[in-house]
């Protein structure tokens, strides 16, 4: 499960190594070209990353005692993150050509079903 986090850190690490202009240009490009819908999804993704990191830090620093509960919570963050990321990919207008059968509405329905199934197991595993 530790592997989930590296998505954030390595990029950050690399951006620190790069010149600040590169990061700035990346940020600018992101602000300029991303539709508002996707930014909204990105905000949710950022929240999920923070939630996952917080749980992981708690697990390491304080206790992992009800291990199943920790796993359920962490898996909830991770699972919801990948489902939301999938939704973001599918509704991204740039990827329209890749998803001929998945319309944005269908993508959202898939997202909803996946989330329900995920949280069914999360709830069952909380103990």
């Amino acid at each position: 499960m530790t592997r989930r986090d590296p998505t954030g850190p390595p990029a950050r690490a690399s951006s620190q190594a790069a010149t600040p202009t590169a990061v700035q240009s990346l940020w600018k490009a992101y602000i300029d070209t991303t539709p508002a819908r996707l930014k909204f999804i990105d905000a949710f993704l950022a929240f999920l990353v923070l939630s996952g990191v917080a749980q992981f830090v708690y697990c390491i620093l304080v206790s992992s005692f009800p291990f199943n509960a920790f796993l359920a919570g962490f898996a909830s963050s991770v699972g919801q993150f990948v489902l939301t990321a999938s939704l973001r990919i599918q509704v991204n207008p740039e990827n329209r050509t890749l998803y001929k059968t998945v319309s944005p509405e269908r993508a959202f329905a898939d997202f909803a079903i996946g989330s329900v199934v995920l949280h069914f197991f999360v709830f069952n595993f909380l103990g």
Binding site: V82, S86, G114, F121
Partner: peptide
Amino acid sequence: STWYAIGTLASM
């Protein structure tokens, strides 16, 4: 990602 995230939690 969908398969792994849900499948692993389910398998546990």
